[in-house]
């Protein structure tokens, strides 16, 4: 006991810097590893890419290891302005953002439908959730086959309706069609929508699972009370259930916006931006310009990345602001 008192007085008489500021410093020590990696892999590259967008560079260093980049100022951005492929990509990005939002109500309705106690419901739920578990690349491949005019579901059904089976000059089976089979992924007008439809499949599953967990937390007494007051159907849904699902809706919107903006993998698998660049979005166009086989224009690619970053920043700042407001309100 006496020992403890002695130690106590010593710390009080000569407190080290660390001990004095323990509470302030400790969180930073825990944060340092994460901060270092975040800086190396996220923050510094952002600034490097901003810097690179002011250069013209084919990604090569000369034999001595000096970069061959040439300073061009804002020329890359001026070029973007006049680049029809850039505007196509931007338009497609907007189409993705708008149509991808369908995943939120669709997910809600499937969740409502699945939120009942029937034998085997767990099985149905997992079946609906299945597309989110498989990789986006696989989803892209499956839909690519689905749309294929020769051997896909679309082609087979079309052939059954509009085509007749005949034999060709060599006696092999072939088809003669009144109308050519629609080639969705090769059509300038439809390809983007075809890919978005494929992307919606897993995204709806994701929103559904968010709403299913949300529905577990809907207060039963409020439903009861609403029912006593005579609310049912749409009114019940809109005025009683949906407001209680607000946190789930917020997260669903956030993940859907992010999902729409990083729709790279589907496009890379299904069309590579084709036919003739009509399904590109900014992220894929950036890849194509900078690091694909026919790219090697790193400066120009970086300027596209910068524009995409700007667009994402708008959404991200809004979400962060919302979350901050919520936290303040919660305290």
């Amino acid at each position: 006991m006496a020992d403890a008192v002695v130690t106590d007085t010593r710390t009080r008489t000569e407190p080290g810097f660390f001990r004095r500021n323990k509470l302030a410093i400790a969180p930073w020590i825990f944060l340092i590893p994460a901060l270092i990696f975040f800086a190396i892999y996220v923050v510094i590259p952002i600034f490097e890419s901003l810097w690179l967008s002011l250069y013209q560079w084919n990604g090569l260093y000369d034999a001595e290891g000096n970069s061959t980049a040439v300073w061009v100022g804002f020329e890359n951005y001026a070029r973007l302005w006049g680049d029809p492929n850039f505007w196509t990509s931007l338009r497609n990005n907007i189409a993705w953002l708008v149509l991808y939002m369908l995943a939120v109500p669709a997910g809600l309705f499937i969740a409502l439908f699945l939120n009942q106690t029937v034998t085997g419901m767990r099985f149905y739920k997992s079946m609906f959730f299945f597309p989110f578990v498989i990789s986006q690349v696989v989803v892209g491949l499956i839909f690519g086959w689905f749309y294929n005019p020769d051997f896909g579901v679309v082609g087979t059904v079309w052939k059954a309706i509009f085509c007749e089976e005949t034999t060709n000059i060599l006696g092999n089976t072939t088809f003669r069609c009144e109308r050519p089979v629609p080639d969705i992924l090769s059509s300038e007008q439809w390809a983007t929508y075809g890919i978005i439809a494929a992307g919606l499949w897993p995204q709806i599953a994701y929103c559904m699972i968010l709403y299913l967990t949300g529905l577990n937390n809907v207060a039963a007494d409020q439903i009861e009370a609403a029912r006593l007051d005579g609310a049912k159907g749409w009114k019940m849904l809109w005025y009683v259930v949906v407001p209680q699902l607000k946190p789930a809706t917020f997260i669903a919107v956030v993940v859907t916006v992010i999902g729409a903006l990083r729709s790279f993998d589907m496009i890379a698998i299904m069309t590579q931006g084709g036919p003739f660049g009509s399904t590109n979005v900014l992220s894929h166009y950036m890849f194509e310009v900078a690091i694909s086989e026919y790219g090697e224009r790193y400066g120009y690619g970086s300027s596209i990345a910068t524009v995409l970053f700007g667009i994402m920043l708008i959404f991200i700042s809004y979400f962060l602001w919302r979350m901050y407001q919520d936290e303040k309100g919660g305290r």
């Binding site: 020769d150 092999n172 050519p180 089979v181 080639d183 036919p275």
Partner: peptide, 20 residues
Amino acid sequence: VDNHASMSWQDAIAPFANGD
């Protein structure tokens, strides 16, 4: 051939091999 924009060069061998 129709639908050539959705075929790779290997896919395009199919109608050739079939005699179409």
